[in-house]
Computed example of a mutant assay.
Amino acid sequence: MADVSRFIAAGVRARSAYHVVAGEPAIKLDAMESPYRLPMELRDRWLHALRDLALNRYPSPEQYERVKARLARDAGLAPHIGVVLGNGSDEILQNILLALASNVTVVAPTPTFVMYEQIAAILGRRFVGIPLKEDFALDVPALQDALARHAPALLFLAYPNNPTGTLYPMDAVRALLDVDDAAVVIDEAYYPFAQASLMGAVEDRPRLLVVRTLSKQGLAGLRFGWLAADRAWTDELEKVRLPYNVGVVTATSVEFALDYADVFADQAARIRAERGRLYEALRAQVTVWPSEANFLLFRPPVPADAGRIHARLKDAGILIKNLAAAGGALAGCLRVTVGTPAENEAFLAALARAL
């Protein structure tokens, strides 16, 4: 194999590629996807909406503007707030970091969504993680101290947090929004399950950027995310966004999905109800943390058994996420996505056997 290391940036060489488990288990509960497919009665309507698309043409600016206007209207955004579209919210996070000066520092409470640090490292931005408290609560004084000491350009806050499911108290978040100089990115990927949002705060906070995605509410295969912020931000981010980054199939599907938002809201409500039931069932067997997302973080009675339990579940055709290798606060932890009632029952039975 050729040695290409001298051509590759140090931040890239030092990282591993994001690993996605191959194969399709009988029950897939590892990636925070919705367990519900598009309802059968909507599939023909969706296919009809796609039927006459001109796949030989690039997406049109008019369609992009139509999608942005619809998102802004549905979110109740003021005219001075802009919207940027992304090929998944990961691309938007990447574009934010791309747009920053090369010598900046970014901060986030940890453990959190791995892509904040991954993208920052690859792009050569300095990442500083500030540990959460033992119960995964936000350590506001430690974060305020870090913001003062490191003078970062950006603070990432997953709201609620991944992989813990924690929804930080609004007063704690607002205290961080008031810190001078640093911009704050609120990642609301799990908004449908938390039903708490900082979206309305972008109107009078020019350093606040709010990111959302359609992935968690049943459209992960589309790869679509969006950002809302003051137009001073979105005008700059549009320079970084690659042309035609959202394809016509995705853009048309997003317009279709927005017309049926009530269907996806109903699915989210069912997942929230199952989350509560699953949490109570897990409490009898393991240490489990409350969650406002569509997953639950838990630790078996013997933390060292996490790898064995993960393997036994996989052998039983049930895939969950093994976070034990992350170490630190996540040592011995596993994470399960909330599935359908039948999937959750199968998981609980297999977990009991594995324990």
Rank of each mutant, 00 (worst) to 15 (best):
T234N: 05
F264V: 03
L242H: 04
K321P: 00
F127R: 03
P25E: 13
I92L: 15
D305S: 13
N56P: 00
L209E: 01
K321W: 13
Y116D: 12
F113Y: 15
W233A: 07
P111I: 02
N87G: 00
R205H: 13
V114A: 15
D180Q: 12
V263H: 07
D171V: 03
D262T: 13
L38P: 02
G86H: 04
R125V: 14
L176C: 05
A257Q: 01
R275S: 04
I186H: 00
A22F: 00
M32I: 02
V83C: 13
A232P: 00
R275E: 02
A324T: 15
E134L: 11
V338D: 11
T112G: 09
L147Y: 04
I81C: 11
T337R: 10
T213L: 06
D259I: 00
D262H: 14
I130C: 10
T234Q: 04
V107N: 01
A153W: 11
A14S: 15
M170N: 06
A326C: 07
S253M: 05
L93I: 06
A311F: 08
A22P: 01
T340Q: 06
Y64A: 14
A151W: 00
D178C: 06
N162Q: 12
L97I: 13
V84I: 11
R241A: 15
S197V: 08
G23S: 05
S215G: 15
I92E: 05
G221F: 07
E134N: 08
I81K: 01
D235E: 15
Q195L: 15
Q144A: 12
G328A: 12
P152V: 07
L100A: 04
L77S: 06
A228P: 00
H150G: 02
A352K: 11
V83R: 07
R277N: 11
P131C: 12
E62Y: 02
A31F: 06
G86P: 00
L355V: 00
C333K: 08
N162A: 09
E62M: 05
L85C: 08
V288I: 05
Y64H: 10
